[in-house]
Design a protein around this nucleic acid. Structure first.
Lengths: 308, 308
DNA sequence: CAGTATCCATATGTTTGAGATATGCCATGA
DNA sequence: TCATGGCATATCTCAAACATATGGATACTG
């Protein structure tokens, strides 16, 4: 059976035109090289070299063979290198999913940007979907990784890592009595102060999310929130708040998107309400690109923590 | 060092998704296959397979590697096949040289035609030159084979094989007294009958050829031929004969080219004058195409001998 | 839930073939 | 004519591929 060793030997003998010198280059003695070339000629079923009194010369069939052998050896090197690059996350593909509430977190955008800069040959696919859809896509292999807001059901076979907790803010119409006039020192509001407010919450029709966390926190504060409106899209909640139809509680990263007509109040730490961000992936060895992305996410998170 | 064996093993494991079945296909036991895959992963420096409870699955890096491995293995098969085809004379190149007096022999044209039909992928190069030039081109490798009319000097390193002897004919103006009127039974002429004729011979400025053979035969017949004209091209001799300026002696194969105004007489066998045809090539193992051509020449010659 | 089956990895022994060494054969060069 | 160059052949050694035995982990079945 032909091996790459045979190709390396034939190419080197052809280059040297001299078996003894070729053997030296190859780090073996001349008799085994002579034998291996003879074996190769038997495998191929053709004479590749003319044995001359002083050295050897390729036959025409030998020229045909050595030319292709050279290309094959080069392709082998390329195959190894491409595989290594892929394993290092320098090339390949990565399908990243996220919920709408995770979409606006700067960590996602900075990590994606950083990955793009670090590994321009990695093909990225971004997918926004609900948490259950994201989980299903992870299981089916349509996604490699997903950023979600809650630890999820059907997480068997997945690794769900809590990346960070994001502060939740109270969004209320800027003319709301609780809204601080400009110039006044901002204070942290107690959740219980919202007991009589009309709530506008964003709720996905399927599966859990921040919605349930907010409900749970209100109950813990001693009241059942009056949910007057449920918006089908996250940004719709802010529009309704701006229109004066009620208040909402949203992750801090979203606050930056819409400030017109809306005032944002921070909650008292006792409210114990945060918007966690989870990174979910399959519980198996990750691809190079996925490993790199996870590393970048950790790195970007650490960078954000130390910003003023 | 990576070998084709590793590529074959990886591709088969990938195809089966199961090491034990892959080992069966490869004709080895499962433990050595597992070890060889591990060695390959060490050589490449990346994990190629995820080990699952039931079988294995390619990693993304593994997919990159196996895809290229598959191509490489196919290219190896192509390299072997192309080399075999070349060695069999089914592809490659052949540079054939011939003297002007050999050019018109039907053996050359039929052999070239036959080679073209047998091996359409052999690139042919035909070259007409003088005998010394042909010999020099053989030595320098510009030609692979040459058809010449005389055994040559500086033939060291060459194999000169006499292929056949071609009959020489006397060419004379059709109104020449020696020319038979149409209808009369043709007879063979004695060389000596030409003692008083004006000879027109084709002589190349350099080197021997049929010229010297003709001179020698005339001397053997008891006279020195009166050479009135020497033509620079072989066909010129026939033109001069047709013009009535003298007679010539030419190889029989050329007689078919020009019959207008010329009568051809056969010589008495005692004239001992023939136009030999030699095949000259380097004294080393021939390429596939050259070997095939030589075989075809022998075969065509045998075919011609048995034609009426 | 315990026993069994599946399937790959590890440990150890055997066999094979690549490579080393010694030497032969042939052509060239001095 | 003899020495040298250079590849081929003969024989031996040992590294590595492979076989066998077994282990470890997970899934399946009764």
């Amino acid at each position: 059976m032909i091996e790459l060793r045979h190709l390396r030997y034939a190419v080197t003998v052809a280059d040297e035109g001299h078996m003894t010198r070729a053997a030296e280059r190859l780090g073996i003695q001349q008799p085994p090289l002579s034998q291996q070339i003879a074996k190769l000629e038997a495998i191929v079923g053709a004479s590749l070299f003319k044995r001359l009194p002083r050295g050897v010369e390729l036959t025409e069939a030998g020229r045909t063979f050595v030319e292709r052998a050279r290309t094959i050896l080069h392709d082998v090197d390329l195959a190894i290198e491409a595989t290594r690059r892929n394993a290092r996350g320098e090339e390949g593909s990565l399908a990243i999913g996220f919920t709408s509430s995770a979409a606006f977190h700067p960590l996602l955008s900075s990590a994606v940007r950083s990955l793009g800069e670090t590994s321009p040959d990695v093909a990225l696919k971004l997918e926004e979907a609900s948490t259950p859809d994201l989980i299903a896509m992870l299981h089916s292999g349509l996604l490699d990784v997903a950023l979600v807001r809650s630890p999820v059901a059907q997480s068997g076979g997945l690794v769900i890592s809590r990346i960070l907790d994001e502060e939740m803010l109270v969004a209320l119409p800027d003319r709301h009595p609780l809204a601080m006039p400009k110039g006044e020192k901002p204070r942290r509001i107690q959740l219980s102060e919202l007991a009589n407010e009309a709530f506008i919450l964003y709720r996905r029709p399927s599966g859990p999310g921040l919605y349930d966390s907010i409900i749970a926190a209100c109950l813990a504060a001693g009241f059942s929130p009056k949910i007057r409106h449920e918006a089908p899209r996250l940004l719709s909640t802010l529009s309704l708040v701006a229109a004066g139809l009620g208040i909402s509680i949203i992750p801090g990263s979203i606050a930056r998107l819409e400030t017109n007509g809306i005032a944002y109040l921070r909650l008292d730490p006792g409210a114990n309400l945060v918007a966690p961000l989870y990174l979910a992936r399959k519980d198996e060895q990750p691809s190079g690109a996925l490993q790199l992305f996870a590393d970048i996410v950790q790195h970007e998170k650490a960078s954000m923590k130390h910003q003023p």
